[in-house]
């Protein structure tokens, strides 16, 4: 037995429930989680090799286009999707809407995304995720936000990016921010940790953990604006451990083909000729919106804190 062996579950005092929650996140690494709104789309996603599907009422680009209040997927829709696939089914709940989360847990969804893509129910508070058996994933734009969500019990993080745009720029910015802040923290002398905790607005115990281990205590995936196999590979090369694709698949010309290509490119993200092979004959990607031209009120990433 070597003394230096670190628990992959990053801290042995975690409760059994939290270990199974983070454990499922570990199993999804290197995979693609696809947004679906119907049972047929869920079936296509599974056929293409998705590691999980995300059930929602409308994909982000439609929410953006149509406006109105975006809520949890209807219960019967979630159940229809659960019936047709054997891979994990995730679903989105509104930020702070713990009743939607309780409903989704009672339906036995495998993961809940407390998501800024839906209209927030609470502008001040996120869901207390510790008290749920089902794991949660939350969006983050920087290290402080990531650690606040982990402090509330999130078992997985994802970048917020800017959902529904097909523009990867914000996801890139968030990935780079989180990784550069981790690097800064892991080289900081111990007397600076409390100040960094204060500046990041993050729980001190988690700041100490990241400073010591040099990485987040839970897996971090990329989301928000991934539209092509190359986008997925870029996110992986920048340190994302898996990718979420929303509008990018079912708003493309050929969803099954695009979905397969993104799965392929994510698995082989280190190999440019594999990514080129995956990208051949795809047809048109989803139409995009330049995220930097969005008016402030339409920026989804500013929801939650």
């Amino acid at each position: 037995m070597t003394d230096s062996f670190q628990s992959p579950l990053r801290g042995t005092e975690l409760s059994a429930d939290h270990r199974t929650r983070i454990g499922l996140a570990e199993m999804l690494r290197g995979g693609v989680i696809m947004d679906v709104t119907t049972a047929e789309e869920a079936h296509v996603a599974q056929e293409a090799g998705a590691v999980a599907v995300m059930a929602l009422e409308r994909v982000p680009s439609d929410i953006r286009r149509d406006g109105g209040v975006a809520r949890m997927s209807p219960v019967d829709k979630v159940e229809e999707i659960q019936k047709v696939v054997s891979i994990p089914v995730m679903a989105k709940a509104r930020i702070g809407h713990f009743i939607e989360a309780e409903i989704l847990e009672s339906l036995e969804v495998d993961f809940i995304d407390e998501s800024e893509v839906l209209t927030p129910a609470d502008h001040a508070h996120h869901i207390d995720k510790q008290r749920f058996k089902v794991p949660f994933v939350c969006g983050a734009t920087n290290l402080g936000e990531a650690l606040r969500r982990i402090g509330e019990g999130a078992a997985m993080l994802r970048t917020k990016g800017e959902a529904g745009t097909g523009d990867i720029t914000e996801a890139v910015r968030h990935l780079r921010a989180i990784h550069s802040e981790i690097r800064r923290l892991s080289t900081a002398p111990q007397e600076e940790w409390m100040t960094l905790a204060k500046n990041h607005g993050a729980p001190y115990s988690l700041v100490c953990q990241v400073a010591t281990e040099g990485r987040l205590p839970v897996p971090n995936f990329a989301a928000g604006g991934i539209a092509t196999p190359a986008d997925a590979a870029l996110a992986m090369r920048l340190g994302a451990e898996a990718v979420f694709v929303g509008s990018g698949i079912f708003k493309s010309k050929d969803p099954l083909r695009t979905a397969k290509a993104i799965v392929h490119a994510t698995a082989h993200f280190e190999n440019a000729s594999e990514i080129a092979n995956a990208s051949r004959n795809l047809g048109e990607a989803m139409p995009g919106i330049d995220a930097s031209k969005l008016p402030e009120a339409e920026r989804l990433q500013d929801r939650g804190w």
Binding site: M27, R29, G31, G49, I87, P88, K260, V263
Partner: peptide, 14 residues
């Protein structure tokens, strides 16, 4: 490793 068996099946068949 553990993961999704359908995904792994697709990828290693490729």
């Amino acid at each position: 490793p553990g993961g999704e068996s359908t995904t792994l099946h697709h990828l290693f068949k490729l």
